[in-house]
Write a protein that binds this DNA or RNA. Structure first.
Lengths: 335, 335
DNA sequence: CTGAAAGCGCTAACAC
DNA sequence: GTGTTAGCGCTTTCAG
């Protein structure tokens, strides 16, 4: 314990800078020297002191991840996302500092305190007050989601507009004429969480393009909320034959309500879910779904962050194309 | 940006050490001086450099959290736990570095690299190979779970033995004579994850003490796994009247299988769940349950870690007492 | 290809 | 109650 770079240098009979360069690879080292140094490092069990390194190099090899653990977002989405971020970060030799608050102060603290090389922020809203603050920090940031004005920050997300449109198109192709979107809780809508709005926009466009009738209903993340939403849909569109559900939490309850109301899936109503594929597969009937590739998004976010940190590349926005997988919950419109 | 403690000292007309002491409160400062220093800090937007501080003080104000994101553990348990850890850590002015691998190398890296002041490790198994390694580190560690030999490390967990016993006692008191425990997946058992074993031990003791007949079945975290487990129970104990379910993931499928087999809850079989209360409440019928207080466990873990870091207190083991809440899925044994 | 040495920004003796 | 200063352990010029 507490062995320093000087100890290693002494043991290897070289200078401290040589040890440093062996470690960083930032200048050529002769093979014999490298061998001796590496030997000494192993023998002494030497580990560079992260703080000292950060102080001297102004790099921490730590990524900050702001992941507000909200209850109305499905946990498995968050977990997959976090998993993607952490494993991708390790790939770049970085660790992850986890912030679960969505407070500006916390993000300023870790950034201005030079605890992180970059920030990744989940769950960005259309007019997120954190965005302008991020812009002012000296570390680059990557946003998951799409604020109205990214102000030169990198963004990545599923292309929810394309997803909404794709769902509608899929149903139109199956001959459905009257379809409904059961979406996020009202609170999410009111936060102007951009994915919810983009989903609705795409869905609506798909509906229009195929000359369908479509309605949209918000849906709270509870048993009662789900049955309310279904009932509102049935009231507005009694002969609805297909549902798009963009609410992982309420999904099982929506399906249960359909059963209770005597509507069989898929014979009476087809269902397309927008959710992580494990959720779509975990229902009693495996659902046709558009995957939310949370882990992939996390990985891309890290790549974009590292591109800025390491290669100083400019900010960019990447929207991942949706993919629909048929699993049997969608069939041609009943006669 | 990049303002240092010297800038602050200059602006306030004091020495750097005075600024440092104002920040740390480690020695008395006259009111007027403090005012001027605080003013300068605010005006300049000064933030101490975490690395420099860590180097000089050998304290990072960061806690390492090892949270293997396994699929067979309910995500909401993990999330609650992580939430508890992060918010409690903030209470102590600490941030959290998240490790999602269960590899020894990662934990050694962050510890020996002096990235953290302490480690909290989830999901500890009976003979966890990480435990002896943790013992050798210079930072204190807190384990969630109970290894066979804690080797002087702090431990905290729900008292699963007491929980298993409590569930059996509750059912015995309601007149049930033949009961079953549907437990963790076989893989969890085979890892000798201690909570699963302690639960079984307590359940078995409760069964014996009340002269009941009881069987235990493992249960995979899948639809098929759940129906298999239920069927095995029904085969071994055809007139079973109560089930204890210790498997959050399979819980909904267990209930669905009971429905399919024509056993009504609670009229034909009573059900006690061991799971987070939100899971118990989220089922179609709210379940009588023993809560897994994941968030509280996380908070206690951090308190124990900080007790060791800040006050250098000795290691201890804390088992949280279980509490059973009746919610209507358990009734007196059918005649 | 290697070494010497000047910091990086802060803390904590040690002075007074 | 405050100031001076010697490190903390590493990176990175600058020299050779």
């Amino acid at each position: 314990m507490a062995t320093t770079i000087d100890d290693v240098a002494r043991a290897a009979g070289v200078s401290t800078s040589t040890v440093s360069y062996v470690l960083s690879g930032k200048r050529p080292i002769s093979e014999p020297t490298r061998q001796r140094v590496e030997r000494a490092i192993r023998d002494l069990g030497y580990r560079p002191h992260a703080g000292a390194r950060a102080l001297a190099s102004s790099r921490t090899d730590v990524l900050g991840l702001m992941a507000p653990l909200r209850v109305d977002v499905n946990f498995s989405v968050i977990m997959q996302f976090v998993t993607g971020v952490v494993s991708a970060a390790r790939t770049y030799g970085h660790d992850v500092l986890l912030l679960t608050s969505d407070e500006i102060a916390d993000m300023e603290r870790v950034a201005s305190g030079s605890m992180v090389d970059a920030l990744v922020m989940m769950d960005v809203e259309a007019d997120d007050p954190r965005v302008p603050v991020l812009t002012g920090l000296s570390q680059p940031a990557v946003l998951i989601g799409l604020p109205r004005d990214p102000e030169g920050l990198s963004c990545v997300d599923l292309d929810f507009a394309a997803a909404g449109r794709l769902a509608a198109q899929h149903l139109a192709r199956l001959g459905h004429r009257r379809i409904a979107l059961i979406g996020s809780p009202r609170a999410v809508m009111e936060r102007h969480t951009s994915y919810a709005e983009r989903m609705i926009e795409g869905f609506t466009r798909g509906v229009t393009e195929s000359s369908l009738e479509g309605v949209v209903e918000a849906c709270e993340a509870s048993t009662a909320g789900a049955s309310d939403a279904v009932d509102r849909v049935l009231a507005r569109l009694p002969d609805v034959t297909a549902l798009v559900v963009h609410n992982e939490v309420a999904l099982p309850w929506v399906l249960a309500t359909l059963r209770e109301r005597g509507r069989h899936v898929p014979d009476d109503v087809s269902v397309v879910a927008l959710c992580p594929s494990d959720v779509a597969l975990g229902q009693l009937l495996p659902l046709t779904s558009i995957d939310i590739p949370a882990q992939a998004i996390g990985e891309v976010a890290v790549e974009m962050a590292m591109a800025r940190v390491v290669r100083d590349e400019p900010a960019e926005t990447r929207l991942l194309a949706p993919r629909l997988v048929e699993r049997g919950s969608t069939v041609a419109r009943p006669a």
